[in-house]
């Protein structure tokens, strides 16, 4: 029954050749959220990688003492918006996994507030992912996942878990929050892996 509403354009949506299929360009930074914004003080913040044999944790100061990367990257949200050339600062997962021993190939990211998302380990290593705490030269806003969020820009942005507090190694790929509720287990924007 749908018909075009006279005079309605909606927010501007630009196509661009650098964008994956079905994406349009935005200049603001829309917020997606599954719940209230957790207020996490850096004094209490902790990041933990848990494996089959133990765990390794960093507090905020220890985290800031690690090698920090400057990242410039495009990001693609499953809700059809993309942003080009966003700039971040964060710690590469290669750095975090340097001293982590695990036989497991899959990762569940856990966030303050209870959010989870799953990513295969090899998609987090080799310069493909970071734990980011600065966006556009400013500390990451709580709305956008501060104090720190995962940044996995080659996958749809729901994989870049906001308010991340740790990674749990898993022997098999288990679905995280959105992945249990309709979204694709993998989420590659170039293949348009949006839903199941």
């Amino acid at each position: 029954m749908s018909f075009i509403t006279r005079g309605f354009g909606g927010r501007s949506r630009e196509r661009d050749d650098r964008l994956p299929p079905g994406q349009t360009l935005v200049h603001d930074f829309p917020v997606l959220s599954a719940g209230p914004t957790p207020e996490v003080d850096t004094a209490e913040w902790e990041f933990t990688i848990r494996t089959e044999s133990g765990s390794q944790s960093w507090n905020w100061d220890e985290f800031m003492a690690l090698d920090i990367d400057e990242v410039s990257t495009d990001i693609h949200c499953v809700t059809h918006w993309s942003k080009l050339g966003t700039s971040w600062r964060g710690v590469s997962l290669d750095t975090l996994f340097e001293h982590v021993e695990t036989e497991y190939d899959y990762v569940m990211a856990h966030s303050y507030g209870g959010y989870t998302t799953n990513v295969p380990l090899d998609e987090l290593l080799d310069g493909k992912a970071w734990v980011a705490f600065e966006f556009d030269g400013e500390p990451l806003d709580p709305e956008h996942g501060g104090p720190a969020r995962l940044l996995v820009p080659h996958l749809y942005f729901w994989k870049s878990a906001k308010w991340v507090r740790g990674l749990e190694m898993m022997p098999s790929d288990e679905p995280g929050f959105w992945e249990q509720n309709g979204y694709h287990i993998h989420g590659d924007p170039w293949k348009e892996e949006r839903y199941w």
């Binding site: 749908s2 018909f3 075009i4 509403t5 309605f8 354009g9 909606g10 949506r13």
Partner: peptide
């Protein structure tokens, strides 16, 4: 209320 833009976008 559902509005539809000429390119099919809806709000």
């Amino acid at each position: 209320v559902r509005l539809t833009a000429p390119d099919g976008y809806t709000a």
